[in-house]
Simulated scan of single mutants.
Amino acid sequence: MRFAEMTAVVTGGGSGIGKATALLLAKEGANVIISGRTKEKLEAAAEEINQVIGEERAAYFVADSTKEEEVQDLARFIDDYYMGLHIVINNAGGSLQSKILDTSVEEWDIVQEVNLKSVFVVSKVLGKMMTESQVIGGNRAIVNIASLSGHKAASHLPHYSSAKAAVINFTRALALELAPYGIRVNSVSPGFAETPLTEWSLTNEKFMQSIKRNTALGRVGTSEEIAKVIAFAASSDASYMTGSDLLVDGGWMIT
């Protein structure tokens, strides 16, 4: 198994792409800690993952990824109960819909914090932990979840598009900084996929027709399809890849 005896953290792991990624990593041998702000959601997700794989490989820790002190608590939890840290998946995120001239400063700050500041804070705290770890060699990686919106501007998502574009460039900077420690850093940019955050649109026939028309493969993606690419970027299969962004959009950008 690609992640046998490794420890992985997945932020925003209670649902959607984060949960699918945590499940896949656990299936492939990792001990997974899912983090987020809602205990009930995290607890249910961890229990489901353990039931699916038939053993206790998933745990949860309640932490707001935008708050350094809470991520420090997460780091102490990992240090107390696990043998080092190998994989970090920065998946926490969210969005609002508004045009630039209608967006309040408060709304702008909220979206920037959850999508960009969270990646910085988690990467700073857990990245430092990884550099100071006794784990020598082997596979160690950080994967930041960006978005198709970080490549293509959306008039109704100016704050989200800006934050995700910044995540892609932050990934490159972090890759340079952590390369001497043997830690790879890449990002994955999903296109439109079925997640709890997109449920509102899946029943909107006009919107779905637009998605299918503008996607070369003619359909939306699934959380599981995105999770497979994230797992690849986190694994030793991608051992010579760092500072890269993997666009997983069903061909949206080529139409």
Rank of each mutant, 00 (worst) to 15 (best):
76 R>P: 05
236 S>V: 07
145 I>K: 01
176 L>N: 15
41 K>L: 14
224 E>L: 07
16 G>I: 02
216 A>W: 10
229 V>F: 03
168 I>K: 07
231 A>F: 01
129 M>T: 00
45 A>T: 06
113 E>D: 15
126 L>G: 04
105 V>A: 15
186 N>S: 10
231 A>N: 04
180 P>N: 10
146 A>W: 00
11 T>V: 06
8 A>S: 11
113 E>I: 02
47 E>P: 02
254 I>N: 06
175 A>L: 11
224 E>S: 13
36 G>K: 07
27 K>R: 15
254 I>K: 04
219 R>H: 06
10 V>F: 04
2 R>V: 05
20 A>D: 01
194 E>H: 09
100 I>P: 00
4 A>Y: 07
196 P>W: 07
146 A>S: 14
188 V>I: 11
212 K>H: 11
199 E>S: 14
70 E>H: 08
64 D>K: 06
181 Y>G: 10
225 E>S: 08
52 V>E: 13
7 T>W: 03
32 V>R: 04
235 S>Q: 10
42 L>E: 07
44 A>Y: 01
29 G>F: 03
27 K>T: 02
38 T>Q: 10
126 L>R: 05
44 A>C: 05
125 V>G: 02
158 P>D: 07
117 K>L: 08
81 Y>E: 15
131 T>K: 09
125 V>A: 03
233 A>K: 00
59 A>C: 11
250 G>K: 06
118 S>W: 00
180 P>E: 08
199 E>H: 13
128 K>C: 06
7 T>L: 07
217 L>V: 04
86 H>K: 12
32 V>T: 04
102 D>K: 12
62 V>P: 01
123 S>A: 12
127 G>F: 05
23 L>P: 01
255 T>I: 03
206 K>Y: 01
195 T>S: 13
30 A>K: 03
135 V>K: 11
53 I>A: 11
3 F>M: 12
220 V>A: 11
158 P>G: 09
98 S>P: 10
156 H>W: 08
211 I>D: 03
37 R>E: 09
3 F>G: 07
69 E>N: 14
236 S>Y: 09
32 V>W: 07
34 I>Q: 01
78 I>D: 01
117 K>P: 00
38 T>D: 08
246 L>F: 15
155 S>F: 10
171 T>N: 03
66 T>V: 14
121 V>P: 00
179 A>C: 11
227 A>N: 08
247 L>G: 03
244 S>T: 13
9 V>R: 00
215 T>L: 11
203 T>R: 12
97 Q>E: 14
117 K>T: 12
114 V>P: 00
3 F>K: 09
14 G>S: 06
48 E>I: 10
15 S>A: 14
39 K>A: 15
78 I>C: 04
76 R>W: 12
86 H>G: 12
50 N>Y: 05
56 E>P: 03
159 H>P: 06
45 A>P: 03
112 Q>T: 03
248 V>E: 08
78 I>N: 02
71 V>E: 05
191 G>K: 01
200 W>M: 12
235 S>C: 11
150 G>Y: 00
97 Q>D: 11
45 A>F: 03
48 E>M: 13
79 D>Q: 15
197 L>Y: 02
226 I>S: 05
